[in-house]
Simulated assay, not measured.
Amino acid sequence: MLAVFSPFSCLPHAFAATAPTQQVMHVPGSPDFLAVDGASVWVMNRGRVEHWSVSGKLAEVKLGHPCGAMSVAFGSLWVADCKANTLNRIDLKTAQKDVVIQTGIANPRGELNVVSGEGSIWVASDGSGKVARVDPLTNKVIASIPVDSETYYLAFGYGALWGVSATHNTLQKIDPQTNTVVKKTALGRAPGFLAAGEGAVWVQEQGDGTVARVSPETGEVSGRVKVDNSLMYGDIDAGGGKVWLRTTDHQTFVVIDPQTLAIRARVGAQTGSGALRYTPEGIWTTSHDIHVLAWWAKPENIGN
C-alpha cells in the first residue's frame, strides 16, 4: 500500500511552508537499515532483507538475524548476520545469498555497519576490538585490524577507514595501506554512526545530542552542532551539499549545512528510531516502530 502525505503539524511554521512531501510504503515487520541500489533500496527486516522501489517490494532474502547497516558494492549486497556471526554476500541481480564468510560480528545487538572502500569490504568483527577486511575477489578475510574495544561503527572516505568506539568515545582513522590506526580523535558521549562526505567526517555524539565535524586531513574536531537533547538512536549520511541526520525525537530527519553547521530544516513528524540514506534523486528513511519506508523526492529543495 502506497500513500503520499506531509505530516508537519509538529514543526515550526517557518519549515511548514516549504516542507517536502513523502511517499510512504507500509512494510510489515520492522524495517530498519538501508542500502541504496540505483533507483531502489535494500531494507533490513526481521529474518530477511527486502528489495524495494517506490513501486513496491521487488524481492526478499531470508537470513537468520540480519543486523546493522549494509553495503552495496561489487555487484552484491553485503550484510551481517548477528545469529550466525557471519558476513553474507547477496547477488543484486538474482537476490540469492551467494557466499557466507566467517568473519565474526562485533556487536550481537546489531548496532554496527558493513562498508566498502579501497577494493575491500570492512566489518567490525570482534567486540574486544577488531575490524575484518574482506577481499571481494576471494571472499576471504585478508586482515584483522586491532582497534579500540567496542568499535562497531564504520565509514570509508578520504582514503581511510573510520571507526567509532562508543565506550572509548573515539574516532579512529585506519590507513588501508598498512591496516593500522594512524590517528585517534576524542569525541563526546556515546558516539555512534558516522558518514564521510561533504568535506568532513560526521559523527553522531548520541549522548550529547550533537554532531561532530572532523577534518579528514588532521583528524581534529572542527566544529559541532547541537541538534536535540539526545540522538539515541539514529542514522547519518552526507551528499548534495548537505548532511542528513535521522533522529528519534521531534522530527524524522534534520538537514545540516556542512560549512556553517546551521540546521537548515527539521523535516517530518517524530516517528521513533529508523535509518536514512541520501541519493541525488531523493532521501530514503525507515521508521521501524510504525512499519514505514518513506521516499522524500528532490533533496536539492529540502532545507533551502
Rank of each mutant, 00 (worst) to 15 (best):
L2A: 13
C10P: 10
H13K: 12
P31S: 00
A39W: 05
V43N: 06
R48C: 01
E50Y: 07
S53E: 11
E60M: 06
E60N: 12
G64Q: 00
G68I: 05
S71E: 10
S71H: 12
L77V: 06
L87D: 03
I90F: 02
I90P: 05
I90N: 00
L92C: 08
K97A: 05
V99M: 02
T103G: 04
G110I: 06
L112V: 09
V114K: 01
E118I: 08
G119W: 06
G129W: 03
N139Q: 07
D148C: 12
E150T: 12
T151V: 09
Y158R: 00
G163F: 11
A166H: 14
V182M: 06
T185Y: 01
A190W: 15
A190D: 13
A190L: 14
P191W: 08
A196Y: 04
G197W: 04
A200S: 14
W202T: 04
W202A: 04
G209W: 09
V211Y: 03
S222M: 15
V227L: 07
V227E: 06
D228Y: 13
M232T: 11
D235G: 07
G240I: 02
T248R: 13
D249K: 13
Q251C: 15
V254Y: 08
Q259N: 10
T260G: 00
I263M: 04
V267W: 09
T271Y: 11
L276T: 06
R277A: 13
E281V: 14
G282S: 00
I283W: 03
H288I: 13
E300V: 12
N301S: 15
